[in-house]
Design a binder for these strands. Structure first.
Lengths: 110, 110
DNA sequence: ACAAGGTACCTTGTAATACAAGTATGTGAC
DNA sequence: GTCACATACTTGTATTACAAGGTACCTTGT
């Protein structure tokens, strides 16, 4: 999958997944890897950014099958940010498609 | 407009505009700046990339109002690449929206 | 007890790309 | 002669995704 297209969308995707329920980084990689394809080297810096923006907060939970898991929970600001990102994403997609799938572009035989 | 979202889409947008008719960089900036917002510092390196991929070819046309214009014309390979990009864009949007606008995400209580 | 393998965390360094700011040249207006 | 505009181009900076590596915990086999 094209790396460049993902730029700026992964934070929105992660926030959207967290909106459905708390999770931890390793699991997010697993969940999002079906389809979106995100890797560990990406998620950890990303989670730190989200936390620095105060969009998520963390708590530790012990695991029976490995080290403690650091769960992330969406804050109120996180929900707000997610909503804004969804809007921005929608407008962006509309603008791109207005250019790329313009009525005149390919179909007509002129 | 969010810079990061544009990553990887501008080349597709430029190819799509060129599919409707030849143009030169300065004009592309003007056209795409209504909506997409692309800047000169972006377009010139981008055009060179497109040319290196052999997706566009150039020819010079003298202008009565300034330096000669370097027009870009889509090659056959360029049309093919544009079609592939459109497909990839569509799948990408679908995958993102499957995550971000998932049925379960925001509406339900509980 | 020890090795192996999966879970889970995190940190480098690298590549791609968009942009602001600057350089240069031609043309016409004042 | 200077100013503004059209047009081409360059350089340096920021953001981000990723591969590759490293640490630590826990279970299972031997």
């Amino acid at each position: 999958m094209k790396t460049q297209l993902k730029k700026g969308t992964l934070d929105m995707c992660v926030l959207a997944v967290l909106a459905k329920g708390d999770s931890y980084a390793y699991q997010l990689v697993t969940q999002l890897s079906t389809g979106m394809d995100i890797s560990e080297g990406t998620i950890y810096p990303l989670m730190r950014r989200l936390q620095q923006e105060a969009w998520v907060e963390t708590y530790l939970v012990e695991s029976a099958s490995g080290p403690s898991r650091k769960y992330y929970r969406l804050t109120t600001a996180g929900h707000t940010a997610l909503a804004a990102m969804r809007d921005e994403w929608r407008s962006f997609v509309n603008e791109v498609e207005a250019v790329v799938f313009a009525p005149d572009a390919s179909g007509a035989s002129s």
